[in-house]
Design a protein around this nucleic acid. Structure first.
Lengths: 153, 153
DNA sequence: AGGCTTGAGTTCCTTCAGGGAACCCCGAGT
DNA sequence: ACTCGGGGTTCCCTGAAGGAACTCAAGCCT
């Protein structure tokens, strides 16, 4: 948790950061998405401190992004993405795209996506959900919405 | 900067986090995008410590995401998005979408986007850049790419 | 000419979160 | 009875975030 909590701000970006803005949280989500669902797996793969991993997992579960569930009679648990969490992974896909374009260098992308619908190696593109045209940072105006200055319920 | 640097990992998500993963960095980008380009504006709008703001701005400039440039004869500077930075804002648009859907509650979104191309209030949607169909976390397989296990150049 | 103001930082101190390693608990197998 | 292995908890230490005060360089005011 960063020192200052962002959740009081009337901004969906700040609120989202309160859910996954802490260090390691996005990487934990990435790993769970990729099938590394258990504590020990996550800890060894990430090299994260066990203490911090516990904190992050608890927070992500509390936020409804992950679900903790037993997979054995013994006290063994795995973490799985909820629907809310799966939609967050979309965000990670966009991050991967940016990193591939700007940081991967000569070596190229470390990971590729194959899209089920077309079978091609592909990346995500951002489009307008009304007209279907490309939609980027420079293509929009910002307007105040209904939730401005109202605390989220 | 988080204690552990992610930049050594062969993962575009981790590398991207090394650029904007620190607390405040995404909000700084949001503000610059929205037209708050000066040190004092950022500091008072965010309520961030001046020390940390300095560190973040320097880091973002060093990463090529922001550009620092004088706007007066006096030693006055403003920060503007580079092309690399503008593409990062796409990421923020996706974050906003998720926050609107899952965290805004009854009050609704604090901010709306109007898309220049169609003039409608709209949000971003993720689509495949090959076939144009929707592309989400569950719609892809992960494959090793050329940059796997190669340090980025 | 001397002082005031403003933007853009620096310095310093305190507190709290992250790293790391050791420790603990519990149910199963042998 | 003892060990093993997953899933944590406890402890101490360091370093980053908060916060307030201080600095510096141009203009502006009178």
């Amino acid at each position: 948790m960063q020192r200052t909590s962002f959740s009081g701000m009337a901004c969906s970006i700040a609120r989202t950061l309160d859910v996954i803005g802490e260090p390691w949280s996005p990487l934990i989500l990435r790993d769970v998405w990729a099938g590394m669902t258990r504590f020990e797996q996550l800890q060894t793969d990430l090299g994260i401190s066990r203490k911090v991993l516990t904190e992050r997992l608890n927070h992500l579960v509390a936020q409804g992004v992950l679900e903790r569930r037993p997979y054995d009679q013994r006290p063994r648990y795995e973490y799985v993405l909820t629907r809310k969490g799966a939609e967050l992974v979309d965000l990670l896909m966009v991050m991967k795209g940016w990193g591939d374009r700007w940081l991967a260098g000569e070596a190229g992308p470390p990971v590729l996506y194959r899209h089920h619908a077309c079978g091609e190696i592909a990346d995500v593109a951002l489009r307008c959900d009304r007209c279907g045209e490309p939609m980027h940072a420079g293509d929009v105006d910002l307007l105040p919405g209904p939730g401005v200055a109202n605390p989220a319920t």
